[in-house]
Nucleic acid binder design. Sequence first.
DNA 1: ATGAAAGCGCTAACAG
DNA 2: CTGTTAGCGCTTTCAT
Lengths: 237, 237
Amino acid sequence: MSITIKDIARKLNISYATVSRALNDRYGVDPHTREKILKAAREMNYLPNAIARGLVNQQTETIGLVIPDITNPFFPEVALGIEDRAGEEGYSVFLCNTNWEQDRELRYLSLLREKRVDGIILAPVSGKTPSNREYDRVEAPLVFVSEARRGMGKSYVTIDNVQGGCIATEHLIRKGYTRIGFFGAAEDELTSGERYQGYAKALRDAGMQEREKYVRFGDYRTNTGSRLITELIGNGD
Amino acid sequence: MSITIKDIARKLNISYATVSRALNDRYGVDPHTREKILKAAREMNYLPNAIARGLVNQQTETIGLVIPDITNPFFPEVALGIEDRAGEEGYSVFLCNTNWEQDRELRYLSLLREKRVDGIILAPVSGKTPSNREYDRVEAPLVFVSEARRGMGKSYVTIDNVQGGCIATEHLIRKGYTRIGFFGAAEDELTSGERYQGYAKALRDAGMQEREKYVRFGDYRTNTGSRLITELIGNGD
DNA sequence: ATGAAAGCGCTAACAG
DNA sequence: CTGTTAGCGCTTTCAT
């Protein structure tokens, strides 16, 4: 057992409430007593117990980050930013890898609730959404990254994929290309779908025909990507 | 406030001690009562409070993972494995990014201690070690990954870098190459240093001369890598 | 088999 | 300014 607030109170012959006050910068503590307390705390290597504190404060200074795959280069970038910013505010972040599995996402959500995190950032598994009820269960603030179904009453920060697909396609058109294809990750995935819309829109706006044989969807979960790309490129026409 | 063990006890008109026992599969609970309790818990959407539980059990089912940079492709791989295995045992993992900064590593160490994690896995910032005292302070099991100074009485799992450098060099020698260079990350970094030793050993064993101009150290923290490689390759001789 | 009560470490009224 | 007390939600003796 490590040293507690009581230990330092006992040593100084004062009530531990006072110690708590001093340690938390609460007003109403004699400057002199405060000094003594701080000094003792330092000497005794006192380290506050975040668990106990969390229990009474109903706040853990902790958030959960739920992502599909930390190994996918997109997510470390996201995680870094989040962890960094969270750290500045004294928050810790739980890393949860769903491995693109829906039920794992759900299990993590409830584990994080048990752990009483103050908030959750979620990059949902693509495809069919769990009933929103599952998301609504979580009492802490829940915000989506990377993917999000708009209008479900939750905050999200995502990429404007339609716009992105559009810009990319327009760029190629401007460059003079005429046989422009689209390769998306998975058809049932939001990101790909939205980018495809942008692609199609750009083509349409330019009065160009979309050619079906140039449009392909794979499944990054099973890594069909490279095969499809090869096929696409080899598609002389 | 979410629903607690007391709520379900009150509803069933039993003591909450019994509820706790039932919920934790403790023996000595009437099968029938147990059923009632489990059922009520389910209906009331009871979710145990891991914080409270942690306080009394002195165990949080949580570990800390401290790494230099989640953005460096090596670490996500490590993180994935750890998180996955931890998850199987019902443990959560805190992700801590030191950004290669020594004092940040130290701060995280103490933050994790406050959070009362059950263990810490640490990929230390390269270079000068903080006094081992800092590492010894942590009362939870601390194990090193990626880098570790042997013989400091801590567990570690690392790569045999000397062997690695040796094998790579031997491979090139066997292929018939004669101008074999070594490019390491940072000179004061253990990994690079060890690999270099392997490189030198292989050369020595093959009776080959190590040529100084083929040996370079950069600093991946400042990304001097690509520049140095170009320089190295361009080094006609 | 079940209940009463103490206690994990800490904060927050409420009194003095 | 400081001490006493209750309580956060839960587990665990100790009785019954």
